[in-house]
């Protein structure tokens, strides 16, 4: 668990972070989001003490990070940054084995670990081990960056806009494969981004910051349905409701056939990933108020009022 307790940081009397408190439960994926200059990177860097807060404390499993020797602390925290920062004078293999080497692992164990890590990020070990970093594409380099951060199996991972410099198509692929890795490894992750779609896709919890202050801290669905203020609302855009619907699964909202419904309702076969947004789109397309949806296992009805209710958890503007 990572706990921020009244963290404040000033640079030459300009506050970068102002009295922020929240805590990230273990094994959760927390995305820290906000416009540039809102202090999100500063927050992230207080965890591995690259930034020392002026006031407040950061606790990892109830231990103040200030009480842990700094190099020992950092070796237990994976760190991935936007510019990746692979060491240009080392091969891929050497790059991944930096932290294990610092931890004085045995040679065989390191070499085995390098292979595991390359497999994990979806790169063929034989083919990539001996490559120079300058021979890698942007996406490959960032995969190596992730592999390097995970090499010593740290319980915590800090990621500062890791996919920010990758083109949209590769970013999508990286996000998917990283989510897969996370489902497997269950690290406690603090992930900084300014890309809202990325936040919604990846996060278990989102922390929204503005001007150094924490505005809202909640799950993506909650934030979409109950934005704290105008800033959050505008940050998520006018299609905020649609975004929420796209995150809800249609099969979870199927109803019994309503009374006195029209006889000739359309019947639509759907997959288990079919979202409420897709369902809404079908209703519009067929120009009906409700329809019958059939999945592999169950069958049921969705109507406009049901979707409307799901869209906002009762929140009406």
């Amino acid at each position: 668990m990572i706990e921020f307790k009244n963290v404040s940081k000033r640079y030459d009397n300009t506050p970068a972070v102002n009295d922020c408190s929240f805590s990230i439960p273990s094994h959760k994926f927390c995305v820290l989001i906000g416009p540039s200059g809102c202090g999100k990177t500063t927050m992230l860097r207080t965890v591995n003490r690259l930034v020392i807060p002026n006031e407040g404390a950061v606790l990892i499993d109830d231990t103040n990070v200030a009480d842990i020797p700094v190099t020992k602390l950092r070796k237990k925290i994976g760190y991935v940054i936007q510019t990746i920062g692979l060491f240009p004078h080392m091969t891929v293999e050497k790059n991944i084995s930096v932290v294990p080497k610092l931890l004085k692992w045995e040679k065989n164990r390191i070499s085995k670990r390098v292979d595991e890590m390359l497999d994990l990020v979806g790169l063929e070990p034989k083919q990539y081990k001996k490559k120079r970093t300058s021979e890698l594409s942007g996406g490959e380099a960032q995969r190596i960056g992730v592999a390097r951060a995970l090499a010593s199996d740290p319980p915590i991972l800090l990621m500062d806009e890791p996919f920010g410099a990758v083109d949209p198509i590769n970013r999508e692929i990286l996000q998917q494969s990283f989510l897969k890795i996370q489902r497997e490894l269950k690290k406690t992750i603090l992930f900084v981004t300014h890309d809202m779609d990325e936040a919604l896709k990846m996060a278990d919890i989102i922390a929204i910051m503005k001007n150094g202050e924490l505005i809202q801290f909640n799950s993506p669905l909650e934030i979409l349905s109950k934005p704290e203020n105008e800033f959050v609302k505008s940050f998520f855009g006018t299609d905020r409701i649609m975004k929420r619907l796209s995150m809800l699964k249609a099969k979870d909202y199927l109803q019994e056939e309503p009374e006195n419904s029209p006889k000739d309702q359309p019947k639509i076969t759907i997959t288990k990933d079919f979202s409420l947004k897709d369902a809404l789109s079908i209703l519009f397309e067929k120009n009906v108020d409700s329809a019958q949806f059939i999945t592999e296992k169950e069958t049921g009805f969705l109507s406009m009022p049901v979707i409307r209710e799901a869209s906002g958890d009762g929140y009406v503007e």
């Binding site: 690259l50 190099t71 940054i81 936007q82 510019t83 990746i84 692979l86 060491f87 610092l102």
Partner: peptide, 15 residues
């Protein structure tokens, strides 16, 4: 020497 490289080195726990 690239700033990112130094940041990474420091963040990985090098003295």
């Amino acid at each position: 020497v690239d700033k990112g490289v130094l940041d990474a080195a420091e963040g990985m726990g090098m003295s």
